[in-house]
Every structure is written in structure tokens, then in C-alpha cells.
Design a protein around this nucleic acid. Sequence first.
DNA 1: TCATTTCGTAAGCCATGGCTTACGTATAGC
DNA 2: GCTATACGTAAGCCATGGCTTACGAAATGA
Lengths: 101, 101
Amino acid sequence: MAYEMKFEALAAPTRRAVYEKLRAGPASVGALAEGMPVSRPAVSQHLKVLKDAGLVSETRQGVKRIYALDRGGLEELRDYFDRFWTDALDAYQRSLEKSDA
Amino acid sequence: MAYEMKFEALAAPTRRAVYEKLRAGPASVGALAEGMPVSRPAVSQHLKVLKDAGLVSETRQGVKRIYALDRGGLEELRDYFDRFWTDALDAYQRSLEKSDA
DNA sequence: TCATTTCGTAAGCCATGGCTTACGTATAGC
DNA sequence: GCTATACGTAAGCCATGGCTTACGAAATGA
């Protein structure tokens, strides 16, 4: 569940497209594959990677499998960049103080 | 400068390690390569990708090249996840209201 | 001018991974 | 039990890309 996996998961364009489709709300594999330039198994494989990375969750609904955004995983990525942002500002501040001296 | 390139840039573990090293402040290529398990040219190639993605900036200092975090690029990624976060909450809220009806 | 330092680039190797087709599996309906 | 639906998985193909070594280029110092 480390953020490393999340980066690699979101790196592939097609996989990121699948992920972004879920932003509108939960959907089945077939619904997600519809209109995409790749096959349904390809979408299924991408969903597995996203799920293993903790970015999406899966629930059964009859013969369908409904995938949805995992908000916990999303929050982890948001926090990662927030920390990065804070650190970058601190480093910048230190460099200014050092050049002032 | 789209965020697509930034994801792919941060996907490779070694390249992300280079990027995270810059969090402590600007550094030369040689300094960044020191202590890393890959060669200096490898680090140089990674820096080129990061620069093309708008994640780092480069300045000349004598015979050295100093790389630093590009805060604008970082901000773009932070905003991306902030928007995503907001959208995900909205979608979740809508799904609750729908199930209430 | 010549040597040294620091770095980018070219060429090539090889593992990774994204995609396809084919097939197996579980649920729902009759 | 049989069929259809919706999906995951296996096998295999092939482009992508990360790494190495070798080399070239630009700035510094003597």
C-alpha cells in the first residue's frame, strides 16, 4: 500500500484513464471498457493493478463487479505532495536565509 | 508540461529517488549520483526526463550544473490530486443522496 | 595551449509491462 | 441442469525504457 505502487499504477496512460473514469462514480468493468481503445481484459488487468495499489475498491453485485475510487489511497497521494510541497518551501526559505548571510 | 508527463517521470523508482533527493535542496549531478546504485549518466538521463516534465530546473555554475525542484511543477501535481479529491467527495455525496431517495 | 573536471549524448543490451486472443469460472434466469 | 452474461487469468508478442560503457563538449586553471 506504499505510495510507490500508486505512482507506477498511475504512470500508464490507459490505466490512468480508467482511474479517472471512476471519478464520476462507481462502474462495472464492462461499463469502464466501453468507449476505450483497448479490450475488456486489458481494462480488467489495469483494475487489478489499481486495486493492488490501493487506489480502487471492488464490490460484487450479482454477476458484475463494481469498482470505485478508494478515497484512502487517494488521500495518501495527496498527503505525499503536501509534504513534498512543505519541504520544498522550507528548503527554499533556508536557501534565501543562507544567501542573506 | 501536462501532468501526464509528471506521472510517468515519477513512476520509475530510481528517478523518483533522484527527485526526492532534491527535496533537501539544489545539487549538482555528481552530488546526486553519489551513493546511488546507478551510474552518473543514468542520473543525468533521469534529470533530463524530470526537467522535460517540468519537475526540476537547471542552472549553470561554472563547470557544474545545479538542479533544483521546480515548485511550479510540484504545485501542478498537488492541485491535480486536490481536484481529484474534491470530485471523489462529490461523487460519494451524490451516491449517498441517491441511496437515500 | 593543454590537462582536468563535470556533464550530456550515442549506441546497444535486456528486462519490464501493456496488449491481444483464447480459455476458465461464477452468477443469474429459465 | 443448461445457457447466457460478466469477468478474471494464462500465454505469448512486441514496443518501451532503464541501464551500461564509450565518447564528445564546455568551462576552469596553470
